[in-house]
Design a binder for these strands. Structure first.
Length: 744
DNA sequence: TCGAGTTCAATTTTT
DNA sequence: TTGAACTCGA
């Protein structure tokens, strides 16, 4: 890379606070890499004193590799094998690393009061968190789950944590009965986490923050990491901001990269206004604007710009590029979602390009289905990147739970998860009793299991079931000391006969896919072969809790499908942005609120700027969404693009006007099968050319016939949307203007 | 207590 | 459509 003038400024300013205001595709990653190189090579700065934080594993990996390359050394495989190399990792990994470092040192007892966990803590994901909360709400506090849903309470607790409000401090904020409950749950939740020796995602930040407020701890890390860099600074939340502030306060060598146009995580507590604080904290900071884009064509940039400028809160940047003008935006305006998908698949099929150059984006995860079907039909290989899909599967969670309790026997959630999986006749009654003992005597499950004979309330039969589990557990625990991680996993599967349990009574296909998942997990563990067994287990569990699907993208030739949020860290030659309709994108939840609407617009901006060469935008007049037919006008974001520069895709090849003479002919024709999906697919196309139903003829209680469901009656009518009852219990909603219904 | 069967509700974005 | 939460019979 030949650095431009602005980039050079950023690269060369080393011992000083620095604010890099960057634009999508301005090669900020390369600039940061160069900056690190310059620090080490020219300024002879100790690599180990450089700390750089990113938000995703992917970004961190990439950065580490680049830096390793410029330094002519190999990339560290693991955060614990990071000697003499800058610490370049994600927020969460770095803080976990620090927490473990502190907890493994001599001061761990001293900080116990603050941190409430020991060094071998486990990390609870959202699911684990929910089950802790549920059991607190139900069993400990005896509350109605419907009145106090775990999800809602979880949200409030998370908000409190992200505002650095502890359970104790929360008490002072109580001004209604709901908060009173939240407070109680929060308090119990913290107790429970500590008992289980576990942390949730928010805790990782908060505990780090609390530790850094201890003078000698802070002092240690300030001396250790004298040069700090934070990528994606607009995505930091309050605890992250405070942590960085503490670490940087002594030497003030803090460089942050900030792009307000790409702030799309405010819903998760990210606050792009942290930049205002940054400017207050470092009034002397050098501000560098990276305004040259190296990624996209001139056209793509000017359109992205024309959309984003509709946001009132936005720092104007004079973006330019030396790249080609490029082609116009292609717009697909399909009559329905099936055709939209078909058109996209055809474009991908026709154009001569490796599939991996194509990226298909949508607003919600649930929106990939139609496109997937079209791709399958054309035999186009694709991959859907779906958040944590893999790690949420039952078989994966079960096996991880076994590993977790071997690692940390205080982990009650994992223990509960597998104590009776596969079934060992340890029923709810036994578990409830164990819970009572656990709470009354502050024991962990492991201690109770060990001394199950002393639990008088249980009969011998139940006791022997627990003892049986206890033997299995002890056996596996002992094995974990000598076996490598992959061997241990195998041993668990074998000992508890997990595969048989999992696949019993399943069809071949399902069986196959479950076993494949297990295989994939085994493959993952094989990367930890080279580490000492117990250490490997520890590292593996930590890594896996921070992994996302994003990290599994590889180089093979696939079309990639993902949400726009997930795509933020990517660029691709050709990008399709789909579902561009009001209420969808922007989402109906955001329409009432300017702040949220602007975030949606930034999301659109992110989507558009992923494209390097070609950009396709698409929408459908009508589509099947959440199991109803819906119609929405085109997205306002489409209107914000100058239509003169849009090329409309010709869809005539995809809409078959001559397939049948009339709609009802086609359904009465011999080859139409009401119960077959494919008949309906072809029918959908036919419907297009039919005169739409005259709305004025439909009233509540109008009897209608529907080819698939026969006779119906309208029970509710809201403009075009009718609720139609097939029987007293079966009511469907459909759009009668376009639905194939007829008055009878 | 299990499991099969049934109902019912909820659907954003993720370290 | 999926999944969670339920019912009910054994």
């Amino acid at each position: 890379m030949q650095a431009n003038e602005k980039q050079l400024e950023a690269i060369q300013k080393i011992e000083w606070p620095l604010l890099i205001i960057a634009w999508a595709g301005s090669w900020k990653t390369a600039t940061l890499t160069k900056r690190v190189e310059n620090m080490i090579k020219n300024h002879k700065i100790n690599p180990a004193s450089i700390l750089m934080v990113t938000f995703t594993n992917k970004a961190a990996n990439e950065m580490r590799e680049r830096v390793a390359k410029t330094l002519w050394i190999s990339t560290p495989k693991n955060i614990y094998a990071n000697k003499n190399f800058p610490l370049i990792w994600t927020f969460h990994s770095i803080w976990i690393f620090m927490l473990k470092e502190i907890l493994s040192s001599s001061i761990w007892e001293e900080v116990w009061e603050i941190i409430q966990v020991k060094k071998d803590f486990v990390i609870y994901d959202e699911q684990d968190k929910q089950s802790v909360l549920k059991s607190i709400i139900k069993t400990k506090l005896n509350l109605d789950e419907k009145e106090y849903p775990a999800k809602q309470i979880s949200f409030h607790i998370s908000n409190a944590k992200n505002s650095l409000v502890t359970a104790k401090a929360y008490e002072k904020q109580i001004d209604n009965s709901f908060k009173e409950i939240v407070f109680q749950v929060y308090t119990e939740y913290e107790k429970e986490l500590s008992q289980n020796n576990s942390l949730d995602f928010d805790d990782i930040l908060i505990k780090t923050y609390s530790l850094l407020r201890i003078e000698k701890v802070l002092d240690f890390y300030q001396e250790k990491y004298k040069f700090l860099m934070v990528d994606e600074y607009q995505d930091t939340n309050l605890p992250q901001y405070e942590i960085v502030k503490l670490l940087a306060s002594k030497y003030r060598n803090l460089a942050v990269v900030w792009d307000d146009a790409q702030s799309i995580y405010s819903w998760r507590g990210a606050d792009m206004r942290n930049i205002i604080n940054f400017k207050k904290d470092y009034p002397e900071a050098l501000v560098v604007k990276l305004e040259q884009n190296y990624r996209s064509t001139k056209n793509i940039i000017s359109w992205a710009n024309s959309v984003i400028k509709n946001n009132a809160t936005w720092i104007k940047k004079e973006l330019w590029t030396a790249n080609d003008t490029g082609e116009f935006i292609n717009l697909v305006e399909a009559p329905d979602d099936k055709i939209e998908a078909k058109v996209i698949a055809s474009i991908i099929e026709q154009k001569w390009k490796p599939f991996k150059d194509d990226l298909i984006l949508y607003r919600l995860n649930a929106q990939s289905r139609q496109i997937e079907e079209a791709l399958i039909q054309k035999n186009i290989p694709y991959k859907v990147i779906w958040w944590l899909k893999f790690y949420e599967r039952k078989e994966i969670k079960d096996l991880l739970a076994y590993l977790k309790i071997i690692h940390n026997h205080n982990d009650a959630i994992s223990m509960k998860r597998i104590i009776n999986v596969p079934p060992r006749k340890i029923w709810t009654k036994t578990l409830d009793m164990m819970d009572i003992y656990k709470n009354n005597y502050s024991l962990n499950y492991f201690q109770i299991i060990e001394n199950i004979d002393e639990v008088e309330e249980l009969n011998n039969w139940a006791k022997s079931a627990v003892k049986n589990f206890s033997n299995i557990y002890k056996y596996l625990f002992n094995k974990s000391i000598e076996l490598t991680l992959p061997e241990l996993l195998r041993e668990i599967i074998k000992t508890v006969d997990y595969e048989n349990y999992l696949t019993e009574g399943l069809g071949n296909e399902e069986k196959e896919s479950k076993l494949q998942n297990i295989q994939e997990l085994e493959n993952l563990t094989s990367e930890y072969l080279w580490i000492e067994p117990r250490e490997a287990l520890w590292n593996f569990l930590e890594d896996i809790s921070l992994l996302t699907d994003m990290d599994k993208i590889d180089d093979s030739d696939f079309v990639t499908l993902m949400t726009i949020h997930t795509s933020k860290w990517l660029e691709e030659k050709r990008v399709f942005v789909t579902w561009l309709e009001e209420n969808i994108f922007p989402s109906f939840r955001s329409l009432q609120n300017t702040t949220e609407l602007e975030e949606e617009r930034r999301l659109m901006y992110v989507a558009m700027t992923r494209a390097k060469e070609e950009l396709y935008l698409s929408r459908a007049e009508e589509r099947f969404h959440f199991w109803e037919y819906i119609r929405n006008p085109e997205s306002r974001f489409l209107q914000e693009i100058d239509k003169n520069f849009i090329k409309y895709c010709d869809l005539s090849d995809y809409i078959d006007y001559n397939s049948s003479t009339s709609f009802f002919d086609s359904i009465s024709s011999s080859n139409f099968n009401f119960w077959e999906e494919s008949s309906w697919t072809s029918l959908k196309n036919v419907i297009k050319k039919f005169p739409q139903n005259d709305l004025s003829k439909f009233w509540v209680w109008t009897k209608v016939s529907h080819p698939k469901f026969w006779n119906w009656i309208i029970t509710e009518l809201n403009w075009e949307i009718a609720s139609i009852a097939f029987s007293w219990i079966w009511i469907k909603k459909m759009n009668i203007k376009i639905a194939p219904v007829k008055i009878v």
